[in-house]
Design a binder for these strands. Structure first.
Length: 1039
RNA sequence: GCCGAAGUGGCGGAAUUGGUAGACGCGCACGACUCAAAAUCGUGUUCCUUCGGGAGUGAGGGUUCGAUUCCCUCCUUCGGCACCA
């Protein structure tokens, strides 16, 4: 055998595959289909590093195996080529982004070509191709027509460096994901997609995705962030009691204006704890709240929202303060507002009050930026006693704190004994230490002073008595008393379950007289008196009741858990769950609110003020808008409004389908204008058009779509690409999309999708959203696009950091291929470690896989044509129980076939390769190897090292590619070993191992184990108490 | 703070209905070949050891004849989310 020369072999076979068009997906419905998809790359100027192809190698291995198993495989590749980097490059170097992108694609394609992938390049797609984005635009228009796209003026994330608006998903720690600049909130005209209409389905259908990693599903769940609660409406008492009275008497009052903006004489809040409504002591609105927009003239300069409501502004007394605060909040970056500024700030809106519908109390209204404008109603009822944030704010501004929930600690148990008791905390004001009794580990460690209430005894008296009895201190001053706490626990000292109703009392020590005295010896034995610091108390006082009181008195924490309602009239005594139900019913009856589900997921800000993206195919006509407004019925129902894009966005109209695509025009400068308009706005000739409805002057939308748009549906594009070649559709043109239905039905869903976990909350949510929409309008007939998903673990650089130009630690696949060959690289990347885990690159590791391939290569020299002269493995043939059919090699080979087949299916490539290495090691011990064995080995190795195996396959005398071979079937009988190693344990420790026939009986195994000399020695003549036998594995003797 | 994943030799990692811990690979050591080196091949390689054994899978405890695997408590690392009412 000549030497293994990867460079020569790989070029040869790549050329052969291309010439024979081996990997073009066949147009046949005869075979079962298998659609395996990679996340297509963004062709950056940096080219590929060795980390990128990891996922592609994996899908290629699977694609090759599936093809050999008789599937019609679709394994395509394309380019997600719109996006900021190409545009920034264009600005810097004055090159059209298309030119730069095309150059990059060429480089990427060449690099991928080196690795011998089975991509069907005849289906290559590119999101920047007008023939492609024609459909992206078409799909956007369908959403527009269904009222799922709307124009919004709300403040959005604005990146000052990229000069564009960003979606929530594009932020990383409050910074722009692209450039790292701190993101600001800026009111801006934007197109927004109503992904929130699909929130419930996106969440619920996650349960149907059985073959998705739990971690990804969990991330999506958190991102969607469903929370159940209620809307509560507070009347604003701005016009004395009049509006409250009106409201009270008028049950049918609308809470929203036709445009969906809350009426500003009613303040709507969202809460997940409606049961605490009686505990509300103030109300907070976000700086972005419409209440403020409408009362602050300065704000109106930015925002032009039609308002049908009479402003309450004239009732507000402190315009200037509020305006200053709102202005300041607006300029805070997202980062400042959340992470750095945990410290809460706010301003009271003086002159108006919110009336608590449940008891008529007048509550002050604050504007504070700890309330987020875009979530819920943009306003909250503050219940400081039962919410951490409200508590913090209330403490800072001296607002009342009203307890309406009595805590329940511990778990309710059976046969509980009921007692009333007290827990007393005593603080020494001189050093802030707390008095505690250490009862020892057995009886709960450190506790505060506790005791049972005697009949008719007052809690304070009781506490003072207990303090004196147990510690000797007489002079203590009460500073605080808690609500009742219901505590369930097991009293170890008495051996009973108890429910106690406890009251906590907080004292300060007045003087230190008599401390530690008057204690009987018996008491001294039970516990030790200790003064502990607050920090020690936090750590050492573990009892839930005592720790709760510590949190309450010392840390002033809110109780946010469930419990029993108190101070809440008709809710008193109900559990949190019951109280929620009852109050919601009450609110609904009185029309003060209703049950409501909210999502953290925001609508998707879908426009970018940049050049290199799909133009949004809409036209705006001012005349049409005016005429629409004239005819707009005053009381149009919300439902009708939202189901129609043109009604929802007056003056905007969709470009007719036959005019698509709206091509991206050439511009002189790609530099963003920064005014909130894209560079396209400067091209008068392109912008100004005739209105297709009235013929008057109209303008095109100049914003473009975000980078994520093209990737929302690209898995469909691969199917559409060659559709005209399907016999049934040969005559059909591109439109309408129903021409593709049959092909979609055939190929969808994608059977297997492989890509980075970083897309869990963006691309994978967006794509699911689009797919569900396409399902709703009948384009596809499956509700989910991706049947099975697997995330790729990152390949880190040798220094353990991410591979990046910045660190200078990038490894280029071209160099690796040149030095070790593509096959060695493919095998190495699959062998490094578990596929989904991150793993550091180690060039030394490649030496091992190259050696492995060379070992297999030279095994060729030992291949013999006839299998009759096979020499059996020594042990096996000499053994009296030998099964003559099974030599050792046959059984190892079949075990390998089994393992490789199962491991590829389960993405455990590393162990599949390890097993093949074992097989190679086993084979190299043989003088001769049968051609049957060797051929089977080559077949199962071929998905990993395709060029290598093609070469050997042809050297074995085959004329056709190994890809046409049938995937080897595992034969259970052949895989059986003749002999097993029987381990013998004495008292759980391994003391001997015996070679025994595979089909040895239990009796015989035990007999042989006991007969062993070594075992006899360990038994020391004692009789075994018990002998455990595990079939085919071990005998365990207990003495 | 909340949610999720993971901690095993010098290194990447293997082993799950609880049954020989360290497969496979790298590295290292020794040997063969060589004038020599590289490459290649062979042998060894968890630690301690008085060579009988003993200890050992992040730490501590529990269940079991037997625990990397199951249960409890805790620690560390990584990933995601984060004032979401």
């Amino acid at each position: 055998m000549k030497n293994y020369n990867p460079e020569k072999i790989e070029k040869k076979w790549q050329r052969y595959w291309e010439k024979k068009k081996l990997f073009q997906t066949k147009k046949t419905f005869d075979k079962p289909k298998y659609y395996i998809l990679d996340m297509f790359p963004y062709p950056s100027g940096a080219g590929l590093h060795v980390g990128h192809p990891k996922g592609y190698i994996a899908t290629d291995v699977i694609a090759r195996m599936k093809q050999m198993q008789g599937f019609n495989v679709l394994h395509p590749m394309g380019w997600d080529a719109f996006g900021l980097p190409a545009e920034n490059y264009a600005i810097k170097n004055k090159v059209h982004p298309r030119v730069a992108t095309e150059k990059n694609i060429k480089i990427f394609k060449k690099q991928l070509g080196l690795l011998g992938f089975t991509y069907d390049w005849s289906r290559e797609i590119n999101t920047t191709d007008p023939e492609y984005y024609k459909w992206t635009q078409w799909m956007f228009l369908q959403m527009f027509k269904k009222g799922l796209a709307y124009e919004s003026y709300a403040p959005i994330n604005w990146c000052p460096s990229c000069q564009t608006g960003l979606a929530n998903e594009d932020l990383e720690d409050g910074k722009c994901e692209r450039c790292g600049s701190a993101v600001e909130q800026k009111p801006m005209r934007q197109w927004v997609l109503k992904i929130t209409d699909y929130a419930e389905r996106l969440l619920n259908d996650l349960d149907k995705l059985k073959n998705w990693p739990e971690a990804i599903k969990e991330m999506q769940k958190n991102w969607i962030g469903r929370s159940e609660g209620a809307t509560v409406r507070f009347v604003i008492a701005s016009e004395a009691k009049q509006s409250y009275n009106n409201y009270n008497g008028n049950s049918g009052i609308a809470s929203s204006s036709p445009s969906g903006i809350p009426r500003n004489d009613i303040l709507e809040v969202f809460t997940t704890r409606p049961d605490t409504l009686f505990g509300a002591t103030y109300v907070v609105v976000a700086p972005e709240h419409s209440l403020i927009e409408n009362c602050l003239p300065a704000y109106l300069r930015y925002v032009n929202i039609p308002t049908v409501c009479k402003p309450v502004g004239r009732k507000i007394e402190n315009f200037a303060d509020i305006a200053a605060y709102v202005e300041k909040a607006k300029h805070k970056t997202v980062l400042e507002r959340s992470e750095l500024q945990k410290d809460k700030t706010g301003v009271e809106i003086k002159g108006i009050k919110a009336i608590n519908p449940v008891n008529g109390e007048e509550l002050p209204i604050f504007v504070a930026d700890y309330v987020i404008g875009g979530y819920g109603a943009g306003a909250v009822m503050a219940v400081p006693a039962h919410d951490d944030r409200d508590m913090e704010f209330a403490k800072k501004y001296g607002l009342p704190i009203k307890t309406v929930v009595e805590p329940i600690t511990g778990q309710k148990k059976d046969n509980e004994e009921f007692r009333r008791s007290i827990v007393a905390l005593v603080r020494d004001p001189k050093n802030n230490k707390l008095l505690s009794l250490n009862w020892g580990e057995k009886f709960g460690g450190n506790l505060f002073i506790g005791g049972g209430l005697k009949d008719g005894e007052d809690a304070v008296k009781c506490a003072q008595r207990e303090i004196e009895e147990e510690t000797g201190y007489k002079n203590v001053k009460l500073i605080a008393e808690s609500e009742k706490i219901h505590h369930h626990y097991f009293a170890a000292s008495k051996n009973v379950n108890r429910e106690i109703e406890a009251v906590g009392l907080f004292f300060e020590l007045s003087d230190e007289k008599n401390g530690g005295q008057n204690l009987t010896d018996k008491e001294k034995d039970k516990f030790k008196l200790e003064w502990i610091t607050e920090k020690e108390a936090d750590e050492k006082v573990k009892d839930p009741l005592h720790h709760y009181l510590f949190e309450k008195f010392v840390k002033n924490s809110a109780y946010t858990g469930d419990g029993l309602s108190v101070n809440s009239t008709f809710l008193d005594g109900l559990s949190t769950k019951e109280a929620k139900e009852k109050i919601i019913k009450w609110l609904e009856d009185k029309k003060y609110g209703e049950r409501k589900i909210n999502y953290k997921l925001r609508d998707w800000v879908f426009s970018r003020q940049r050049y290199w993206g799909e133009p949004i195919p809409l036209i705006f006509c001012p005349a049409c808008k005016k005429s629409m407004e004239n005819f707009l019925p005053q009381d149009i129902s919300r439902k009708e409004t939202i189901s129609n894009g043109e009604r929802l966005n007056p003056g905007w109209m969709a470009i007719p389908e036959d005019k698509l695509p709206i091509k991206l025009p050439n511009v002189k400068s790609y530099v963003p204008t920064g005014t909130g308009e894209s560079p396209l706005a400067g091209i008068q000739k392109w912008v100004n058009v005739k209105c297709p409805k009235c013929g008057g002057p109209a303008k095109r939308e100049t914003n473009t779509m975000p980078q994520w748009a093209g990737s929302c549906w690209y898995y469909l594009a691969y199917i559409m690409k060659k559709i005209s070649n399907f016999p049934a559709y040969r005559q059909a043109g591109n439109f309408p999309i129903s021409n593709y239905s049959k092909a979609f039905d055939w190929w969808l869903p994608v059977d297997f999708y492989v890509g980075g976990a970083e897309h869990a909350t963006r691309h994978l949510i967006y794509a699911r959203f689009w797919h569900k929409f396409l399902y709703d309008i009948g384009v596809v007939n499956k509700e989910e696009p991706f049947e099975k998903l697997q995330s790729v673990g990152l390949i880190l650089a040798e220094d353990g950091r991410k591979m990046s130009k910045r660190w200078g630690n990038v490894i280029n696949p071209d160099d690796v291929v040149k030095e070790f060959g593509a096959d060695a690289m493919r095998v190495y990347e699959m062998f490094m470690g578990p596929f989904s885990q991150p793993c550091a690159w180690n060039t030394n590791g490649l030496v091992g896989t190259k050696r492995f391939l060379e070992k297999v290569w030279f095994l060729f020299d030992r291949v013999v044509k006839s299998k009759t002269k096979q020499k059996n493995d020594g042990i096996a043939s000499s053994s009296p129980w030998a099964n003559p059919r099974n030599d050792k090699i046959t059984s190892v080979l079949h075990q390998t076939i089994k393992k490789v087949t199962e491991d590829i299916e389960a993405m455990r490539f590393n162990t599949a390769i390890a097993k093949m290495m074992e097989l190679a090691n086993e084979l190299s011990k043989q003088e001769t190897i049968s051609i049957e064995h060797y051929s089977l080995f080559i077949k199962i190795l071929s998905p990993f090292a395709p060029h290598f195996c093609e070469e050997i396959w042809s050297l074995l005398g085959h004329k056709k590619s190994v890809i046409f071979e049938k995937w080897p079937e595992y034969d259970a009988k052949s895989a059986m070993e003749n002999e097993i190693i029987l381990v013998v344990q004495v008292n759980g420790k391994v003391r001997d191992s015996l070679i025994a026939p595979a089909e040895i009986s239990e009796e015989e195994a035990k007999k042989q184990a006991l007969a062993s000399e070594k075992i006899q020695k360990w038994l020391e003549g004692k009789e075994p108490k018990k002998i455990i036998y595990v079939k085919g594995k071990l005998v365990s003797i207990v003495v």
